[in-house]
Protein backbone atom coordinates (compact mmCIF):
# COMPACT_ATOMS: atom_id res chain seq x y z
CA UNK A 1 0.00 0.00 0.00
CA UNK A 2 1.18 3.52 -0.60
CA UNK A 3 -0.40 6.70 0.53
CA UNK A 4 -0.66 10.26 -0.71
CA UNK A 5 -1.14 12.96 1.91
CA UNK A 6 -2.41 16.40 0.98
CA UNK A 7 -1.86 19.42 3.22
CA UNK A 8 -3.61 22.75 2.65
CA UNK A 9 -2.64 24.78 5.75
CA UNK A 10 0.34 27.02 6.39
CA UNK A 11 2.62 25.22 8.87
CA UNK A 12 3.10 28.53 10.64
CA UNK A 13 -0.59 28.66 11.51
CA UNK A 14 -1.56 25.02 12.12
CA UNK A 15 0.10 21.71 12.97
CA UNK A 16 -1.37 20.00 9.89
CA UNK A 17 1.90 19.63 8.01
CA UNK A 18 3.71 18.32 11.08
CA UNK A 19 0.94 15.88 11.84
CA UNK A 20 0.82 14.64 8.24
CA UNK A 21 4.59 14.12 8.20
CA UNK A 22 4.44 12.33 11.55
CA UNK A 23 1.90 9.91 10.07
CA UNK A 24 3.56 9.37 6.70
CA UNK A 25 5.33 6.08 6.25
CA UNK A 26 8.57 5.69 4.31
CA UNK A 27 7.73 5.78 0.63
CA UNK A 28 4.60 7.91 1.02
CA UNK A 29 4.07 11.14 -0.89
CA UNK A 30 2.95 14.49 0.46
CA UNK A 31 1.45 17.23 -1.70
CA UNK A 32 1.14 20.81 -0.47
CA UNK A 33 -1.81 22.71 -1.91
CA UNK A 34 -3.60 26.02 -1.24
CA UNK A 35 -2.09 27.70 1.88
CA UNK A 36 -0.14 24.48 2.41
CA UNK A 37 2.37 25.71 -0.18
CA UNK A 38 3.98 28.00 2.40
CA UNK A 39 5.30 24.78 3.92
CA UNK A 40 7.51 24.33 0.86
CA UNK A 41 9.48 27.54 1.44
CA UNK A 42 13.10 27.70 2.51
CA UNK A 43 14.14 29.66 5.55
CA UNK A 44 10.94 29.51 7.58
CA UNK A 45 10.79 28.29 11.17
CA UNK A 46 9.13 25.14 9.83
CA UNK A 47 11.36 24.38 6.85
CA UNK A 48 13.37 21.86 8.85
CA UNK A 49 10.44 19.50 9.39
CA UNK A 50 10.21 19.07 5.63
CA UNK A 51 13.97 18.86 5.03
CA UNK A 52 14.33 16.28 7.79
CA UNK A 53 11.61 14.07 6.31
CA UNK A 54 12.84 14.34 2.75
CA UNK A 55 14.73 11.04 2.81
CA UNK A 56 11.55 9.07 3.62
CA UNK A 57 8.79 11.04 1.94
CA UNK A 58 8.46 12.46 -1.58
CA UNK A 59 7.30 16.07 -1.38
CA UNK A 60 5.31 17.89 -4.03
CA UNK A 61 3.93 21.42 -4.16
CA UNK A 62 1.16 22.83 -6.33
CA UNK A 63 2.66 25.28 -8.84
CA UNK A 64 -0.51 27.31 -9.52
CA UNK A 65 -0.86 27.94 -5.76
CA UNK A 66 2.78 29.06 -5.51
CA UNK A 67 2.28 31.50 -8.40
CA UNK A 68 -0.96 32.87 -6.94
CA UNK A 69 0.90 33.68 -3.74
CA UNK A 70 3.92 35.20 -5.48
CA UNK A 71 6.30 32.55 -4.23
CA UNK A 72 9.30 32.26 -6.54
CA UNK A 73 10.37 28.72 -7.38
CA UNK A 74 13.88 29.65 -6.25
CA UNK A 75 12.60 29.90 -2.68
CA UNK A 76 11.34 26.32 -2.61
CA UNK A 77 13.22 23.76 -0.53
CA UNK A 78 15.49 21.67 -2.78
CA UNK A 79 13.98 18.32 -3.64
CA UNK A 80 10.33 19.36 -3.59
CA UNK A 81 8.78 18.83 -7.00
CA UNK A 82 6.48 21.49 -8.43
CA UNK A 83 3.35 20.03 -10.00
CA UNK A 84 0.14 21.07 -11.77
CA UNK A 85 -3.44 19.76 -11.45
CA UNK A 86 -2.86 16.98 -13.96
CA UNK A 87 0.14 15.83 -11.90
CA UNK A 88 -2.07 15.96 -8.80
CA UNK A 89 -4.49 13.59 -10.53
CA UNK A 90 -1.61 11.29 -11.47
CA UNK A 91 -0.34 11.27 -7.88
CA UNK A 92 -3.80 10.28 -6.62
CA UNK A 93 -3.95 7.51 -9.23
CA UNK A 94 -0.47 6.22 -8.41
CA UNK A 95 -1.14 5.89 -4.70
CA UNK A 96 -3.60 3.41 -3.22
CA UNK A 97 -5.22 5.90 -0.87
CA UNK A 98 -5.31 9.67 -0.55
CA UNK A 99 -5.70 11.34 2.81
CA UNK A 100 -6.54 15.03 3.01
CA UNK A 101 -5.17 16.55 6.19
CA UNK A 102 -7.90 19.11 6.75
Amino acid sequence: MSQLHTVNKSPLERNTLESAIAHAIKGNALLMIEDGVYGAMQGTHKSAIVSNAMSDISFYVMGPDLKARGIDEKRIIDGIKIVDYSDFVALVAEHDVTQSWL
Partner: peptide
Protein backbone atom coordinates in the same frame (compact mmCIF):
# COMPACT_ATOMS: atom_id res chain seq x y z
CA UNK B 1 0.20 5.80 10.50
CA UNK B 2 -0.08 2.10 9.62
CA UNK B 3 -3.82 2.09 10.18
CA UNK B 4 -4.12 5.04 7.81
CA UNK B 5 -1.95 3.51 5.15
CA UNK B 6 -3.78 0.18 5.27
CA UNK B 7 -7.15 1.79 4.64
CA UNK B 8 -8.86 1.68 1.26
CA UNK B 9 -10.75 4.93 1.70
CA UNK B 10 -10.01 7.75 4.14
Amino acid sequence: AKIMEQSDIV
